[in-house]
Design a binder for these strands. Structure first.
Lengths: 346, 346
DNA sequence: CGGACGGCATAGAGCGCTCTCCGGCGGCCG
DNA sequence: CGGCCGCCGGAGAGCGCTCTATGCCGTCCG
């Protein structure tokens, strides 16, 4: 910047009023005479004034900023830190989270600061960041169930909202999906199509969402007479889906239906099936989970259980926002219903 | 927070020194008697003190925050805004940018705030955000060549660094790839393998990177006697790659080599080739561009021109950092060399 | 032995804003 | 016609920090 930026003082002088009046006009507080309001507005645009956020934050104790934290578990080595960011962001899921969060924040002139908390130091940094008032609260998306960050945040009395229920109870709000119902939806659809030799590829069972999806799926299968469903655990990646399907196919060559705990794995599964000469869905029906972009990219397009991620993320932002403004004081949970999206694969 | 957070004053009282001394210890400025330093450090941990960033920013005029802006061109409709974020973040490229940026920022306790600038208002918001001192500068990744944001930023005298050279000259630093050399590398490799009937799928020619890749490719082909190379313009997506290849295959069924201007399109191309019974690389060799995660996910894994995105993003962050600290005053450009990564596809 | 100098800590002046008090002024009611 | 109340704008006190100017010693040199 060439010369010093104009301050409230300058605008006040230009408009011939006091600082307080200009401040009132800017913040739309109390009744200010419309004529004076106009004068002030004119002075603002004439001086090219922009309020200094630091000064404002100092007194309001608000930054209009929230930390959007992607949190992993245990101690990742230093070299893997960058890989963590790349890996997380490569997942289309995260883009949808950001999209939903931004959708809520933007109209309110709030902004998300991106943080990764995959190490002890990084988690410490998140807490410090909030404690020093750099952000008003945190939106936490954990990649592991036993993520220690939520407890840290709750312990420090910092406003935070989680995506997915934490494994150990923590006094924080969260949004989640009725994963169990999602599993049920998948089972009902496969059975409804007439599939009889059904197998499943679950997500990592350390993740509670994986457990729930599986539980809902198995319960429904059991209730319909299928006591045992062959299972291989996957890692939510295309590769792990391929590996799992290869394994399942070896033991159950007559399979006619697959439930994958996410779309990426379903994509890998379809690929393996095609390579082994099985037609999808004619020979084998495949149901995914998430309705991520992978579901559409897949050939054939996936029938999948839709998780309304954007809506969930927006709700997360709203909960945090309310908590920051003091409108909401009690930890709250919002559970979203999954929805079956029928496409070509099943 | 339960009670009022401790301030410098409190720590000073606890340690029996003045505010200024505590401040010096925290910021590691000048020589402070080691004994007193220890006393102060003790008082800090005893009080659980965390410096207030707003107060600090008010006087230092630094926020230790940079805006990471993904900028589109023209006027996108309101409903498409969310889609913009989702679409951008779905591209693995962006994850690598974030990773590189964070790699530089994190050790310096700096943080990126995510912004999208796909509409006039959103661009205005970015400028305002910087003008009010909410961030110290901007890192801009444009999705279109004629993005107006760089000019806006430069006009306002705000510190900013771009990914890729802007189409119209702007007084801002940028990092870029020697795209032309990348095109050359691809041509040389295909010719070196003995390919003779080579076609290419370019990116959108409105993007200068696409033009450059194509120019480097064509120049090299021409120099080696191939005056004419069949071309179809794609859109950097898997689908557009598939469409382009379908078209090219119809007119040139005897094709034995393809250069795709990015990996996503190369992936689509491989898929079409496989569906049409062509073996890759035996019948048709395919070279991609970027070395994104798609290159590895592709079957067969892609031979591709590596763009060191993480390094470039880190350099971007470094340039901005230097500019903010006043170490660097002149707009600077850093051009990275591409590198051929040979895998199975060619 | 006096003065100068350098190392360390302190005092205090802001940074630019919000917000609580106040005071002034006009209108309305008694 | 006077007093009171309500509406609006101004004055000024901070918010918590950094940093310059200053002061206090102790040491060293002339």
């Amino acid at each position: 910047m060439s010369r010093q930026a104009p301050t409230l003082e300058d605008v006040a002088r230009e408009a011939g009023v006091s600082r307080a009046t200009v401040s009132r006009v800017i913040n739309g507080v109390r009744n200010v005479d419309p004529a004076i309001q106009e004068t002030v507005r004119l002075a603002i645009s004439r001086t090219g004034y922009a309020p200094n956020q630091a000064a404002r934050s100092l007194v309001t104790r608000r930054t209009e900023t929230v930390a959007l934290v992607v949190s992993g578990a245990g101690g990742v080595s230093d070299e893997e830190q960058n890989a963590f960011a790349t890996r997380v962001l490569a997942d289309p899921f995260f883009g949808r989270v950001v999209s939903g969060v931004v959708g809520h924040l933007r109209p309110r002139s709030m902004h998300p600061v991106l943080m990764f908390a995959e190490t002890v130091e990084a988690r410490e940094a998140v807490v410090t960041y909030l404690r020093q008032g750099s952000a008003d609260g945190a939106l936490v998306v954990s990649t592991h169930a036993d993520d220690p960050l939520p407890a840290l945040l709750a312990g420090a009395g910092l406003p935070a909202v989680l995506f997915a229920r934490p494994s150990r109870p923590v006094a924080l709000s969260y949004v989640d999906l009725a994963h169990r119902d999602g599993g049920r939806l998948a089972a009902e659809h496969l059975l409804g199509r007439g599939c009889r030799r059904i197998v499943t590829v679950s997500g990592p069972l350390a993740v509670s969402a994986s457990q729930e999806r599986l539980a809902g799926f198995r319960d429904t299968m059991a209730r319909r007479g299928h006591a045992y469903v062959p299972l291989v655990q996957g890692g939510f990646t295309v590769d792990s889906g391929m590996a799992a399907m290869t394994e399942l196919l070896a033991e159950h060559p007559d399979v006619d239906g697959v439930f994958a705990a996410n779309d990426l794995m379903a994509q890998g599964i379809c690929q393996v099936l095609r390579e082994r000469g099985r037609r999808v869905p004619d020979d084998v029906a495949v149901v995914g989970f998430d309705d991520s972009s992978a579901a559409l990219a897949c050939r054939p397009p996936l029938t999948t259980v839709r998780q309304p991620v954007e809506d969930m993320a927006a709700a997360m932002a709203r909960l945090l926002d309310e908590q920051i403004r003091g409108v909401r004081t009690e930890p709250t949970s919002i559970i979203f219903d999954p929805e079956l999206v029928v496409r070509a694969s099943a």
